Simulated scan of single mutants.
Amino acid sequence: MTDSSRGPGPVLDRRALLRAGGAIAVGAGALGGAAALGSLVTAATGPRGAVSEELRLGYLPITDAAPLLVAHGDGYFEQQKLIVGRPVLFRSWSSLMEAFLTRQVDLIHLLMPSAVQLRYVIGADVKVVAWNHTGGGAITVAPGVTDIGQLAGTQVAIPGWWSIHNILLQRVLRAHGLTPVARRAASRSDGTVELVVMGPSDMIPAMATGSISAFTVADPFNAGAVAQGVGSLHMLLDQVWRDHACCVTVVHRDLIENRPETVQALVDAAVAAQLGITADRPAAAAILSGKGYLPQPPKAVEVAMTGTVPDSDGGPARNRIDFHPYPFPSFTAELVRQMRTTVVDGETRFLDGLDPAGVHGELVDDRFVRTAIARHGGPAALGLPASLTRHERLI
């Protein structure tokens, strides 16, 4: 593993990224209709600290990216005097990470477990500066599946090995007496379920053809499967880990070192966008669809952004997705502990030497989001506890 305290950080080794258990569903890079980055390369595009005046944002077409996309589409970046180009849409997590590591984009939203992977397996000198959202993921099952136990002997799709979706799906499987396996055919008699990594856009077609019995992923793909009649929503992942983070905003550390005012403006814009989304979810959904950021049917996007479900604790109905920016240290520590019990097709030995409590300080820089929270009404305005501390709740 590269020592990230020395030099400009690693030149990306694509095979190392795949071996490390990243999202293996490698797509063709950017989708049609979005600004093209061209062919992904395997060497850094410039020296350390080389960032264009126009910042480049990479994302996957899921509601997890909503704060950054709305910040672009509704003028929050402009209010901060930032020049951010048209966000570039990628089909897979691996292509997004590769573009980020090779400096073709300057900031991304990324699965929090994958951010841990980049830092400790790839050795990338990256920092999480804020959470994008909480919740927003679900387990969708094929028609006729009414109980998790029916998944024994079948294939279930996940968006990446190091995803919160994989981690929480496996908790659900084990709670129902099933055993998740990788690269091994599932057996109904043995109660095993084969996990396969699949690009989110491929999940609905795979379920429609019967290739998979279920998938877990971010919205609006769950809502899309229901709208198309090819699947039903079995449960939200928020029912497994209350208010868990999924995607976070990640930048290179040298952007923080060389342009801290730019990073502060980025986080300020994202936090303002989160408040704007919460205040008018239908309007946010209209921006995501109307400006072409999310290519899924507008109704699916609207359901994902505005939908609610009953609260398992008996309280008011809960949103399918919420938007809270603060990266709780307790979450990072618990995430590392959960990663240790998760089956992946890739490198896991790096977890053995990690101090769960210490990972947060090494990976997360919360100075900018703390300032942004204070500037936007304080913790209460964003639905956060005044102490900015919490206890994690998992079933």
Rank of each mutant, 00 (worst) to 15 (best):
S114E: 07
A115Q: 06
A115T: 10
A115W: 02
V116N: 00
V116L: 14
V116K: 04
V116W: 08
Q117S: 03
Q117F: 05
L118H: 00
Y120A: 00
V121E: 02
V121H: 06
I122G: 00
G123E: 05
G123F: 08
G123T: 08
A124T: 07
D125G: 00
D125P: 00
D125K: 15
V126R: 00
V126T: 05
V126L: 03
K127N: 01
K127E: 02
K127T: 07
K127R: 15
V128D: 03
V128W: 06
V129H: 14
V129C: 08
W131S: 13
N132P: 10
H133T: 00
H133F: 00
G135E: 04
G135C: 08
G136T: 00
G136H: 01
G137D: 13
G137A: 15
G137M: 13
A138F: 06
I139K: 05
I139E: 01
I139H: 06
T140D: 07
T140R: 10
T140I: 11
T140Q: 07
T140H: 08
P143W: 11
P143N: 10
P143R: 15
P143F: 08
G144F: 09
G144C: 09
V145P: 06
T146H: 15
D147F: 04
D147G: 15
Q150F: 06
Q150V: 03
Q150Y: 06
Q150P: 00
L151Q: 10
L151Y: 08
L151G: 14
A152K: 05
G153H: 02
T154Q: 15
T154N: 10
T154Y: 04
T154L: 12
A157C: 13
A157G: 12
A157N: 15
A157D: 13
I158W: 11
I158R: 14
P159Q: 08
W161G: 04
W162F: 08
W162P: 00
W162L: 03
W162Q: 09
W162A: 02
S163R: 13
S163M: 05
I164M: 08
H165K: 02
N166Q: 05
I167K: 13
L168S: 10
L168M: 12
L168P: 03
L168Y: 10
Q170S: 04
R171W: 01
R171C: 01
V172G: 08
V172C: 05
V172N: 03
L173W: 02
R174Q: 11
G177W: 03
G177N: 09
L178F: 04
P180F: 09
V181T: 06
V181A: 09
V181Y: 12
V181K: 15
A182R: 14
A182T: 05
A182E: 02
R183K: 15
R183L: 10
R183E: 03
R184E: 07
R184V: 07
R184N: 05
A185S: 07
A186R: 15
A186K: 13
